[in-house]
Nucleic acid binder design. Structure first.
Lengths: 154, 154
DNA sequence: GGTGAAAGAAGATAACG
DNA sequence: CGTTATCTTCTTTCACC
């Protein structure tokens, strides 16, 4: 994992459709070498997947919310497993602070949100309390990580 | 935008490397038709981009945090613009409730977090207060949206 | 909208320097 | 690690239903 690998990863995380030729040109190596590096980055789990990103509202999914979920220790594992299975749940984070978990959830509308909370969250044994934050507007949303100055702070 | 389009979008959001032939097979149309539908989904903005997803820890980015940012109205726009430019910031959501904004931020470690808050957040005029939630563990993280039962709740 | 065929581009593999 | 050659696969385009 040297600087060229990071450059390649950076290209791919910005454009999943970048061809091997484009990658090779940008980092200044041959196509076959670029191919080999991408293969290796994938095999060691540095690049985990390729995805198309959809515009939720184009599919009628208009609501984005974050939900704090407070859980008791008993049944915690089962609860997170159940939540993982919910297609509306995009992210599940175990967090520090007064709340146990933070969920990122996308649903069609408030009716669907109500239904999700009532049928998929509240029935879980471990769930003690929930607190929902409605997102009014999202000005940035990317999966890109900062590979620009990895020496920062370390 | 019919059912076949949604099926195609669903395949692509799960696997950005799915070939036209694979897509065509799965939805039961010809390769050229599948291609045309993908082109159209892209042109109408239903599919916004293709991305490779990196494993942050493979690149030394070990910390994920959510930061509540309270802002005054004055300078709010400039502040969000400035935050948008920060590579550490993956998401910026304007939210309801006592806090103004919720940021999703990835940095190398606590030192980098400290530096980010001190140099990129606190100096912004509109920023009144911040509250940082540390993520201890992430059990699910995807960009996929639920296209399975779009009639839910509507 | 959909199909199938053909030409061009890109990917994967292997031998060699 | 780069080059070249080869094989395979995907994409794009076009004429046609």
């Amino acid at each position: 994992m040297n600087d060229i690998d990071k450059q390649i990863a950076n290209i791919i995380q910005a454009d999943g459709k970048a061809s091997s030729a484009e990658i090779a040109n940008h980092v200044g190596i041959s196509v076959s070498s670029a191919n080999e590096r991408v293969r290796k980055l994938k095999s060691i789990g540095a690049i985990t997947q390729w995805r198309g990103v959809l515009n939720p509202s184009a599919f009628g999914v208009e609501l984005l919310v974050f939900i704090f979920v407070d859980m008791s220790y008993e049944g915690e594992y089962e609860a997170t497993c159940a939540l993982t299975e919910c297609p509306e749940v995009q992210e599940i984070h175990h967090i520090s602070g007064p709340h146990s978990y933070l969920l990122k959830v996308r649903v069609k509308n408030t009716v669907a949100l109500q239904e999700f909370i009532n049928t998929s969250v509240k029935p879980l044994k471990a769930v003690v309390k929930t607190e929902t934050l409605m997102v009014l507007d999202t000005s940035k949303e990317t999966t890109e990580i900062d590979l620009g100055h990895l020496n920062k702070g370390g």
